[in-house]
Design a protein around this nucleic acid. Structure first.
Ligand SMILES: [Mn+2]
Ligand SMILES: [Mn+2]
Ligand SMILES: [Zn+2]
Ligand SMILES: [Zn+2]
Lengths: 141, 141
DNA sequence: TTTTAAATGCAACGCAGTTGCATTTACATC
DNA sequence: GATGTAAATGCAACTGCGTTGCATTTAAAA
């Protein structure tokens, strides 16, 4: 049951177990892919809880390190559960223009630019691809 | 004189030569690095011209293909003259947290993820680095 | 059970960018 | 050079995503 997983994650990061946080986290667990604030609110639907609080809960997750933020082209941010221990973005993301979904390419590391002058101090790298995802390219031209 | 360059670029892309466009383009040429809408407006200063028109001029440059947009983490967009013939982003960008500047790493191609399944159709790739730039890392700890 | 810092709801705000529309202007044509 | 027209501009209002302030509620430690 992913309810338990959600509870464990919160406990593990010493965040208070509130109904809202549990619900939001559950949505992220079940989705298995990056979701926007809007996505999350619409999944929550009836057990609706304040949009501002959703933002705040998400922020607390990001700060705790078990959720990462993906910056979309469109000035909206996506949130995904981050199983990959390392904090911050460790993998590339793929945005499909057909189905509109964003996918974490967890299998891959972000390739480095080996020839970059050594006096640049790289602290963070982000990489994303846009195109047509595996699913969509298979189904229909 | 870069005034002439600006005029040429506009002509080359059959865009009407207006005072505003020439001024904006000149700012981009002189800057030699990505600038935000705000940056541009503040450089224009007195010969001030409507912020909305600045947006529209920039859009026309991007559509024409000689300016590219860089998406910043912070929901603001940066614009840079794109000398590198290929349309869209062909190179990585570096954001310096010290001086706050963004730099086009024009020397480098964006590294590819060779192991990506072939049924993904990659149409665009973006790559950016954050850290401390060459300049800033040299001067002062 | 009591206590308290943290979480929540609600309303107002901030800011980058967009849209609609009336007016002006670059530039092609005569 | 004068004329016509589509494109560019200015201005005001609007959108959408996210943030902030503050009073109230609540999880969980004591
Ligand atoms: Mn991810
Ligand atoms: Mn660039
Ligand atoms: Zn798809
Ligand atoms: Zn710097």
């Amino acid at each position: 049951m992913s309810d338990q997983l959600a509870a464990e994650i919160l406990k593990e990061h010493s965040l208070k177990q509130t109904a809202g946080r549990l619900a939001i986290l559950l949505v992220l667990i079940k989705a298995g892919k990056p979701l926007s604030h809007k996505d999350i609110c619409s999944v929550l639907g009836d057990h609706f809880y304040d949009p501002v609080s959703v933002y705040r809960s998400l922020d607390s997750f990001v700060e705790a390190g078990f959720v990462h933020r993906v910056e979309d082209d469109n000035r909206t941010r996506l949130f995904a559960l981050c199983t990959c221990e390392k904090s911050s973005h460790c993998h590339p993301h793929f945005f499909c223009r057909r189905c509109g979904k964003c996918e974490c390419l967890k299998k891959f590391d972000i390739p480095a630019i080996s020839e970059l002058q050594q006096d640049y101090i790289v602290e963070e790298q982000r990489y994303y691809l846009k195109g047509v995802c595996s699913c969509c390219s298979k189904s229909g031209s």
